[in-house]
């Protein structure tokens, strides 16, 4: 077992916008030096108490880190993947001792469940799904939704896990006649699920009955949009989308996220707000995550940018540390921290206030 020392670092001040919002609290140094692909958080229960742990993924290894005192971390378990590389970590909310991973080269070929080790035992893993998998997302109440197959034989299914990560069952949802690329839960509506499709539609399912409730075409200005957050208010559906292919606009800059409003009854929709980079900042959306009213995105420039979705503007910029570009960013599902990773495998944990 290796123990990594916590290192308090000064935030890079030059070029930072409101750096006071970000406080580096801890760092996990990658001892292997191999290419890091993702990070996530999981609750690990041992001897009756639950601890918020970090999961890191390199192409061939997934590691579980438990917290020690004063923000130090101890690597307690690793799962090895020699045949198919790891693509992403898929946290499953409301269950403990379990995290899922998506494996594949360019597209997802397998989804596996990793069971965190109980006292004196080894961590186990189980194959949940294999094939041509297009999208996967962990949902509240210990559920996992995925879409697979081609548009002709597309299968959309939801698996359910027990709170301790045990037993699972799968329910099929009615597939739309378009390939589903991403999923998003509708906040506060446990039975509602959204999907975005390859031809820029948003679909809504009833998770309880498996019904496809609506398919709505949205603006064609931005292709391959990903839905990061959805909520319903006053009979309208609000969605936060990211636009990887959005181009710089002379009047308002480079749009990275967009808030759209949809009337699910009529399918009429319109853009409400564009979340753009501040003047002088270049780059497009590479990867990002939204939690409550804060959105974070890694840009093609290697900087991480933050937006307050209520205020409507960029609130902080985190430039590359030691000339190493950021490659991924995630909000922790176990607390309010931000997990930021670099290609060299080092993970930085920030408090955003």
């Amino acid at each position: 077992h290796s123990i990594e020392q916590t290192e308090m670092m000064e935030l890079p001040a030059s070029g930072s916008l409101n750096p006071g919002k970000l406080h580096l609290v801890s760092k996990l140094k990658n001892p292997s030096g191999s290419c890091s692909v993702d990070v996530g958080a999981v609750w690990w229960e041992r001897a009756g108490s639950k601890e918020p742990c970090i999961i890191t993924a390199c192409e061939d290894v997934v590691s579980l880190w438990k917290p020690l005192d004063t923000w130090q971390w101890e690597k307690v378990y690793t799962w090895h993947f020699t045949e198919v590389p790891v693509l992403q970590i898929v946290p499953v909310p409301d269950v403990h001792n379990l995290v899922c991973v998506a494996l594949g080269s360019l597209e997802i070929r397998e989804i596996r469940a990793l069971m965190c080790p109980c006292d004196g035992e080894h961590g186990k893993q189980a194959l949940l799904k294999s094939g041509d998998i297009k999208a996967v997302l962990g949902l509240t109440k210990g559920r996992l939704v995925s879409s697979s197959g081609t548009v002709c034989d597309q299968q959309v299914g939801v698996m359910s896990f027990a709170e301790d990560g045990g037993s699972k069952e799968e329910q099929l949802l009615m597939p739309p006649e378009e390939t589903v690329l991403t999923f998003a839960e509708v906040q506060g509506m446990q039975e509602a699920l959204l999907g975005t499709t390859i031809v820029n539609s948003i679909v809504i399912w009833n998770l309880k009955t498996g019904q496809l409730l609506k398919k709505m075409h949205i603006d064609d200005s931005y292709q391959a949009s990903t839905c990061h957050r959805a909520y319903s208010e006053m009979g309208l559906l609000f969605v936060v989308l990211s636009h990887p292919h959005a181009k710089m606009n002379e009047s308002f800059g480079s749009p990275v996220f967009q808030l759209m409003v949809i009337n699910p009854k009529t399918t009429f929709n319109m853009g409400v707000l564009l979340y753009c980079l501040p003047p002088g900042q270049a780059g497009r959306f590479l990867e990002g995550d939204v939690k409550d009213h804060v959105a974070a995105a890694v840009l093609t420039s290697g900087t991480i940018a933050f937006w307050d979705l209520l205020l409507g503007h960029c609130t902080a910029l985190l430039p590359p540390v030691s000339d190493q570009n950021w490659s991924f960013v995630k909000w922790s599902g176990t607390d309010s921290h931000l997990l930021a990773g670099r290609k060299d495998g080092d993970i930085f944990i920030y408090r955003y206030s």
């Binding site: 009833n206 009955t209 319903s232 009979g235 949809i262 699910p264 009854k265 009529t266």
Partner: peptide, 23 residues
């Protein structure tokens, strides 16, 4: 654009769409 452009809204849209959609 305004809210009126979105057409009539319903607070119970999810239940209504569920009762209208094929099972």
């Amino acid at each position: 654009c305004s809210k009126a452009d979105l057409g009539p809204v319903s607070l119970t849209w999810f239940e209504e769409l569920s009762s209208e959609a094929p099972p």
